[in-house]
Design a protein around this nucleic acid. Structure first.
Lengths: 218, 218
DNA sequence: TAGGATCCAGCTTTGGATCCTT
DNA sequence: AAGGATCCAAAGCTGGATCCTA
């Protein structure tokens, strides 16, 4: 039984997990209005998931604050291969040199994630099997390594020296809100330069492996 | 002064190096017959180089046996970026588990290479600046690491488990003489399976860096 | 403006397929 | 058949550009 209005908040992790699993196979059209017929459904699937699962932190930094769970919808092909890398959060260029993994936003966001795959058939989209994931120690330490490699590179060479090649699972990529947005950052010789804002992303290779086996080390 | 007939063999490394450098800027059309007008010039540039430099080991395993030099022509763009990865040698699937770096064909071939870049402008090809290269200790140890990683993976999971992603500079790729050629190798559960023959290749990222700076560590 | 998700042009890489000579 | 070099279609990746809500 699926409704288009908001569910109440789940009481605990297990209730959330079961509710998420019960959505498998449901067409997105049952959860949201797709009559806009356009390609304009950017954050819509995510919103529909929030309503269907009873997320309370809408607009906040965490979707289920009481449970410490971050909700991520992820577009996948029929074989569970992600169509895109997954945005984690923006990098704070201003104080990149003082950031530490233990206190970082990246670590907090990734400490518990409810992955909701959205399977794209030709034109229709169907909810896949949900995965409630917490990184294993091994996974967490690789993520920490990526994070420190990237922030270290920013500290040494400035952000222009960081490419999306760096990092095994985490990478840094542009996140241009629009063409006019620019962030200020430290360039060569301690000069201030303008640059496009950037964010941390999880590579598709990693998220795809997590969906198949949450403890995988791809 | 460039002739289309064979030069005498160079007496020593220095003579070879100077002769190779003197070819810079020479159009390939001055060294070989390009009247075949087709795209069929597969190994032709290499042969022309062998003649122009006085290689004696034609058809043998090394081009200049007395000097221990392997000749490699490498197609590059105007900015020296290689158009392709570079074939090194075939892998001997039969005794891959007994291969060792110190005795390997890969190591021997790469111990001293004369790189002859062939610069592709639109339609014409011109010899670029030659580089006589011997791996530094650091480079050699990375190549050895790649070699052992790849052969180790073959030993553990069979050749079907090895992808071209492995290896920083060296990689393993198919080397199908034609579609009908198949090699026998050990598959899962010690069964014999047929597979396409494979060879070791140097990634374009590595060869491109060598052409710019022979001691680079990209 | 910040957070979040999707789209996409162009370049690179993979996994072969071709083509040549000995 | 072995050695060697180039060609190429399809998949993957980079570096953004868009599009949405609050």
């Amino acid at each position: 039984m699926v409704l288009k209005r908001a569910m109440r908040a789940p009481r605990d992790l297990e209730e959330l997990r079961l509710r998420a699993l019960s959505l498998e196979g449901v067409a997105l059209s049952e959860l949201m209005d797709v009559s806009g017929l356009g390609v304009h459904t950017k954050g819509k699937a995510g919103e529909a998931m929030e309503r269907a699962l009873g997320a309370t932190g809408v607009g906040a930094n965490v979707d289920f604050p009481e449970l410490g769970v971050e909700l991520k919808t992820i577009p996948v092909e029929v074989d569970l291969k992600p169509r895109e890398s997954t945005f984690v959060c923006a990098v704070q260029l201003a104080d990149a040199d003082r950031e530490e993994w233990a206190q970082s936003w990246v670590k907090r966001k990734l400490s518990r994630v409810l992955w909701m795959p959205i399977v794209h058939h030709d034109d229709e989209r169907v909810v896949g099997r949900a995965v409630l994931w917490t990184p294993t120690h091994e996974q967490a330490s690789i993520l920490q390594g990526d994070f420190e490699e990237i922030l270290g590179a920013i500290a040494i060479g400035g952000i222009e020296g960081v490419t999306a090649h760096m990092g095994r699972w985490l990478q840094l990529r542009p996140k241009a809100a629009d063409s006019y947005t620019r962030a200020l950052t430290l360039g060569p010789n301690d000069t201030l330069i303008e640059t496009v804002p950037r964010g941390f992303y999880l590579r598709a290779r990693f998220t795809g492996a997590i969906l198949r086996d949450p403890s995988a080390v791809p």
